[in-house]
């Protein structure tokens, strides 16, 4: 077990190291001066240039430069953005939680819908319900998420004006920043009409969350279904039946627990799909998240922002994936080597 944990932590550290090297290399790969790309300060005067060269150790060897870059990263100095002139660390701290919030809610929704439906399909294997659910799920994960988002906007924001078109909360509400997540922020704030603000925020959230959830629900459904088929066909379930347990007893005592254990590590692999979809949907709904921010950075050729954003997003995905995998292993050490998910 300890060996396993060490291996995973090792993998995570190695990956993070590779990512940090990649982000450092980006400063040299982007078409501007490396120092400008690292610091984000454009049009330097002579003294400023010398000062920054010293700060980033530009006159030393490349390894010293990298170490210097890393120590600045850990101090929270990520450079500043070309377009806004604000420190990148703060900008990411504001936009990443917005994306995480969106992804987390759609993950919850897709678990709540996908797991029961997957159970249903798996238990009625090769019957009509199974085929129908399977067909719907294939359609669900074939939908291009940006098109789905547009259709939702056309239907529920323009044709029937049920939900707001874009943004995170109405401009009437001024929510002070504390955690970066909108709902906790509203509850922590001391504005006087909290209920109205909460309802407004949820209304803004429904369409983007729905757009992301459709694809994810389809994937969760399929993962659950194949896990159910696996578990219900295994020896211990047969043994339980032979001891005279009824179907529902078998499902509730043995089925659910084992199926959930099986899909947990596979869900970890879905983190990146989830976040990618969230990033695309953000652009369409003008949700102030990391995807929207990163794309704006590309349109404006804001190289320091791309470098920092890439590092933040991929580090986040790596850490979450490894932690979920590790958690799954801790609660069920009997599982073999992590299997790749098959839909």
């Amino acid at each position: 077990m300890i060996r396993y944990i060490v291996r995973h932590i090792n993998l995570m550290l190695f990956t993070l190291f590779a990512l940090s090297v990649a982000s450092f290399a980006l400063a040299y790969l982007f078409p501007a001066d490396p120092l400008v790309n690292l610091s984000g300060v454009q049009r330097l005067s002579e003294e400023e240039f010398n000062l920054l060269s010293e700060k980033y150790a530009m006159n030393e060897s490349i390894i010293i430069q990298y170490l210097q870059y890393m120590s600045l990263l850990f101090q929270g100095d990520w450079g500043i953005s070309f377009s806004s002139g604000l420190p990148l660390g703060d900008e990411i701290k504001r936009s990443l939680p917005a994306s995480i919030e969106l992804s987390a809610y759609s993950l919850v929704i897709s678990m709540l819908v996908g797991v029961p439906l997957g159970f249903f399909a798996g238990l009625r294997h090769n019957k009509h319900t199974d085929y129908v659910l399977l067909g719907v799920s294939v359609a669900g994960y074939s939908v291009p998420v940006f098109w789905l988002a547009l259709l939702l906007i056309m239907l529920f924001a323009l044709q029937l004006p049920l939900f707001p078109l874009s943004g995170r909360i109405s401009l009437l509400f001024d929510i002070p920043y504390s955690t970066g997540f909108i709902l906790p922020d509203i509850w922590l704030s001391d504005i006087n009409n909290k209920t109205a603000a909460t309802i407004n925020a949820i209304e803004h959230m429904i369409l983007p969350t729905l757009a992301i959830s459709v694809v994810n629900t389809a994937i969760v459904l399929r993962l659950t279904r194949s896990a159910v088929l696996d578990v219900m066909g295994s020896d211990f379930v047969q043994a339980a039946y032979s001891r005279g347990l009824t179907v529902s007893q078998v499902i509730f005592r043995h089925g659910i627990r084992n199926v959930l254990l099986r899909i947990l590590p596979l869900l970890a692999l879905q983190t990146s799909t989830l976040l990618t979809n969230a990033m695309i949907v953000e652009v369409i709904f003008s949700w102030p998240g990391i995807g929207n921010w990163l794309l704006q950075a590309i349109y404006q050729r804001d190289f320091p922002a791309i470098r920092a954003g890439m590092l933040a997003v991929s580090a986040f995905v790596v850490i979450v994936t490894v932690l979920i995998d590790l958690f799954a292993r801790l609660i069920d050490p009997t599982q073999g080597a992590p299997r790749r998910g098959s839909l």
Binding site: F14, L19, S272, L275, T276, M279, I306, S314, V317, V318
Partner: peptide, 13 residues
Amino acid sequence: SIMVIPTLLIAII
């Protein structure tokens, strides 16, 4: 490590 990074993010970079 590469598997973990979203394809779209690699493409964006």
